[in-house]
Design a protein around this nucleic acid. Structure first.
Length: 562
RNA sequence: UGGGGCGUAGCCAAGCGGUUAAGGCACCGGGUUUUGAUCCCGGCAUUCGGAGGUUCGAGUCCUCCCGCCCCAGCCA
């Protein structure tokens, strides 16, 4: 079985090895995984890694993957997030089928399980304040102290817990705690809270409840209730596994899923935590959660990343237990690779410089054939207009170019992609500023289409658009949000100090070929010699298109220049 | 002088005691090219955090040491 979209075999990661073993030994016949987001924010590339893992394992081993919202904290959660999360998972190419669940679906059962815990003398109602609780918990090195409420009778606990449920107590005054071991070196086992009072409106259960179960208690039971076989989570939950197992061992549950932890994704030149992403939005450093600079799924989508590129990326980086920093270049490479294959090629000018072809007839317009993809003839050809006045890229002209500059300069000849060879004869400058206003060239009619019948070669081929027919548009150039590899690393300096001031450059006066007039929002193109661009899904209007640069082409000329 | 993890090239990552330590990214050469793109070919760890030990043989097993990450929310 291949676990790769590209078909190349890749060794199984340690989780897939484990799943394979469990299938081989007959421990399970079908793997069941789950992706358990909390609906309190938008999904980001780190979640995508988890989604690809969980849904990927299910797909590869003919199992299933549940989408389960971990909605046990109504003070932070909203149904709007549920909607966006579902859309993002679908967009990434995964399908949970009928297996859509909410932890809140299990509130009744969870309550019953709590009763069972109390009856087994494995849980008690504690009336310590939050501060007292902290003191009693002990420290990393010193054991905790048992709560004075720890030895209440079953009857007393039952009555109190029911009172909690019925709203008889103040928020914070009572909690239900598991009775485990206050001297455990693992803090999670020091009589952890499993229920707290919270008078908040829940997005699904409304005001039915005023007590809500905690993550550690809820998650393992939800997994068991759904017959999850492999519960995959990130490394920071490793210390919680003993508690996960304790709950399931103590209670009569249908099964006991195996929790397995893997390293979360870190990427250079960005931040990943929801809290920090939230701050970027709240403080106006980006335009929203779907700002194309954000590594949220919605931001990546708007930037022009394809689902396949994100899946390939997640596949390439692999799954392990080592804390790692993936270079942003790997993500960029993933989208280049995908778009190189799929994106139709077009011509577009970011920084227009007018060229007048002095020996070309005025009022003549030719329709020239251009390939939509040089390596893939199936993508066809299109016609682009050519005329006496065209625009070229400002950076493709130098008045006094160095030897290795293959583009246009006075007296130099270049090829206009799919058109003709032109030679620069003179330039027109603004006398006051010295700015180059126009470049005057002559063309060689014999080089129609870009081939010289005399066999003469030209070093450079540049792109262009016909001035009269060009479509004016706005192009947004995006760059990395931060200008240091790890904005988080310095504890003395706030991560926002490292924001890249040039992460967005808006170019309002760009010119692209007319075929782009009807491009649908979200579609991606390669602007030849520039990079990949997609029609912005929000701000682009018919007649006033806006393109986002997804990623630039590799540019070895940029290296030569240095 | 708590507990749990992790250390293989600049960045990821295979390796599961026995040929010359996979692969990708990055980087450096060379070729093709009407995108300085793509594509192709070649180079890139005498060495696996360190030191000992076991073994005919160790990145893989043992011991000790070093470094990094996580845990003291009524968050997930």
């Amino acid at each position: 079985m291949s676990n790769s979209e590209s078909g190349h075999e890749k060794p199984l990661d340690f989780i897939r090895q484990r799943v394979s073993e469990d299938l081989l030994t007959g421990k399970h016949s079908t793997p069941v995984t789950r992706f358990p987001p909390e609906p309190n924010g938008f999904l980001h590339i780190g979640h995508a890694k988890s989604i690809c893992l969980n849904f990927g394992v299910a797909r590869e081993y003919n199992g299933r993957c549940h989408l389960r919202f971990d909605d046990t904290n109504p003070s932070k959660e909203e149904s709007a997030y549920v909607q966006s999360i579902k859309e993002d998972v679908k967009w990434l190419g995964f399908d949970w089928g009928k297996n859509l669940f909410f932890a809140s679906d299990y509130f009744d059962k969870l309550y019953e399980f709590a009763l069972e815990l109390i009856r087994k003398e494995k849980a008690f109602v504690c009336c310590l304040t939050a501060d007292e609780m902290r003191e009693y918990r002990g420290t990393l090195k010193e054991p905790g102290k048992e709560s004075p409420y720890r030895n209440r009778t079953v009857e007393e606990n039952l009555k109190l817990f029911q009172g909690m449920k019925e709203g008889k107590f103040e928020e914070g005054s009572h909690v239900l705690r598991a009775k485990i071991d206050m001297s455990s070196p693992n803090l999670n086992m020091r009589d952890p809270i499993i229920y707290r009072i919270m008078r908040a409106h829940h997005h699904r259960t409304g005001d039915t409840w005023c007590i809500y179960p905690m993550y550690d208690y809820t998650h393992c039971l939800s997994d068991a209730l759904e017959a999850i076989t492999h519960s995959l989570c990130t490394l920071e939950f490793e210390d919680h596994r003993p508690l996960y197992d304790w709950v399931l061992d103590t209670l009569e549950t249908p099964c006991h899923p195996q929790q397995i932890e893997f390293a979360r994704l870190n990427l250079t030149y960005t931040v990943m935590s929801k809290r920090k992403l939230m701050r970027l939005v709240a403080d106006g450093h980006v335009t929203g959660w779907d700002d194309p600079r954000m590594l949220t799924v919605s931001g990546l989508r708007r930037r022009g990343y394809t689902p396949a590129s994100i899946r390939n990326f997640c596949h390439e980086i692999g799954i392990g237990k080592k804390e790692s920093w993936i270079d942003m270049g790997v993500l960029e490479n993933a989208i280049r690779n995908d778009l190189n294959e799929k994106a139709p090629r077009v011509l577009g000018i970011l920084d227009p410089l007018k060229v007048v072809i002095t020996n070309y007839p005025e009022d003549q317009v030719e329709e020239l054939a251009a390939k939509n993809h040089p390596q893939n003839p199936d993508m066809g050809v299109r016609k682009i207009p050519f005329s006496r006045e065209i625009y070229i890229e400002h950076t493709d002209f130098m008045e006094d170019p160095p030897k290795k500059f293959f583009r246009l300069g006075i007296g130099r000849e270049v090829r206009l992609r799919y058109a003709y060879f032109i030679t620069c004869e003179s330039i027109v400058k603004d006398e006051a500023t010295g700015e180059i206003l126009e470049v005057h060239c002559t063309y060689d009619p014999a080089t129609y289409g870009g081939n010289a019948p005399d066999g003469r070669k030209v070093k450079g081929t540049i792109h262009w658009v016909s001035a009269a027919e060009a479509l004016p548009c706005e192009i947004r150039l995006y760059d990395r949000l931060f200008n240091v590899e790890n904005p988080d690393s310095d504890k003395e300096v706030d991560f926002k100090e490292h924001l890249n001031p040039d992460s967005l450059t808006s170019l309002p006066n760009c010119m692209v070929e007319p075929s782009l007039a009807d491009a649908e929002p979200g579609t991606c193109f390669q602007f030849e010699r520039q990079g990949y661009f997609c029609v912005d899904a929000k701000d682009s209007m018919p007649g006033a298109p806006v393109f986002n640069r997804t990623v630039g082409l590799r540019d070895s000329w940029a290296k030569v220049k240095k």
